[in-house]
Design a protein around this nucleic acid. Structure first.
Lengths: 205, 205
DNA sequence: AGTTGTTTGTGACTATAGTCACTGCATAGC
DNA sequence: GCTATGCAGTGACTATAGTCACAAACAACT
């Protein structure tokens, strides 16, 4: 199979072999929606390359929850599949991605045979919970300009690039606010010298 | 030991025996702070009676995260103890509580010997994550009057009583807002006939 | 009963961000 | 080129909730 096996190093060899034997690898282009709310799940995705964005929707507002980076899995999907309950979140491809799709029917057996496997999911659960706590903290105490700036910095870090190509309204969606607010705040950040904007491209400085 | 063993029915007999043999039972009065942020944890609490409140603090603002009810455990403590990392949240006794304190050093072994035991923590993790998602949803879309009313209804449900004895400023803390706001909103809810206030006691109607 | 401290009630003000209505720009397709 | 579409920029207005500054009510203790 055509990918860097080191991203799966968290799977010990005997388990790794079994997983690879039963799983398939798919590639998805940027923008593909891979998980909708209320959807039932039959495969557990593990990201090999690229970035997946997980977000939630409240009425008409959206909010970015977290990014799944290579060697991470979507723990929301994991739980939804394990318990056969519908998903509460959405996921879409943020950067062209290569994803290992592990069939869910074998998971309980593997978790039973390789108890260490559980650690992976505890870690992810904890990570996501912590991130959500941080998000709440920002929501509760920070004003939009700061939230926006942190959001951009985070995005830059995740995509490993200082430039971001997104429309103002896409950003507004991710932060659960209105487009005009983002336009104004970006202008403010530009005046403060924290970013530059040029033909739809935002650069951190 | 003096408590209703049915609250521990999620532990299968062989495991239950081992756990009880190694654990101690303590009672705590209302108001006791049992977990602070940054604290390291050596025991996993399982609530047998009473209610524990788990909350987070951001700068000077506080926010209620969830209540731990009988037969539930604090999954944040679980993870913090498993990985020996400091706690990110606070916990205090909301209603006089009897708590089973399970020593953490034996947890990894039990999780290994009884893989089903993991389900309990997955369920709790998922529950708490879902609650946090809901909280974010409310924070993002609801106005204070609605958030307050939902908060009171939730509190009434958890304590199994339609009356709440709390000062306005305590409520304000739990919702991460200012006291005057709560005073005004309570008045508003009173006028709308949703609650009554009488000598520091709030009753849902 | 009087002092002290805490809780509640309120009016006035402010700041933030969300909404509305519109203009100018750029790009894509014909 | 022209037009359509979507994106960005901006001023004006509004609503919500947070802040400030008190006053009144209540409780707790001596």
């Amino acid at each position: 199979m055509d990918f860097d096996e080191s991203v799966l190093s968290f799977l010990k060899p005997p388990l790794l072999e079994k997983v690879l034997a039963e799983s398939s690898i798919n590639t998805f282009p940027k923008g593909t929606e891979i998980l909708r709310e209320e959807q039932y799940v039959k495969v557990l995705p593990i990201v090999l390359e690229g970035i997946v964005k997980v977000y939630s929707r409240f009425n008409d507002k959206e909010l970015l929850l977290y990014y799944i980076q290579p060697s991470q899995s979507c723990v929301m999907t994991f739980y939804a599949s394990l318990k056969n309950t519908p998903s509460k979140v959405y996921a879409s491809i943020e950067e062209d991605a290569k994803i290992l799709l592990v069939p869910v029917r074998l998971l309980p057996k593997w978790l039973n045979d390789f108890p260490d496997f559980n650690q992976l999911f505890y870690d992810q659960f904890n990570l996501r919970y912590s991130e959500l706590l941080d998000t709440i903290g920002h929501l509760l105490t920070d004003r939009m300009d700061k939230r926006l700036y942190e959001h951009l910095k985070n995005k830059a870090e995740v995509t490993n690039s200082i430039s971001i190509k997104m429309s103002h309204s896409q950003i507004a969606n991710e932060l659960g606010t209105a487009r005009e607010v983002i336009t104004r705040m970006l202008k403010k950040l530009e005046i403060e010298g924290k970013i530059t904007q040029d033909s739809g491209e935002i650069k951190l400085s």
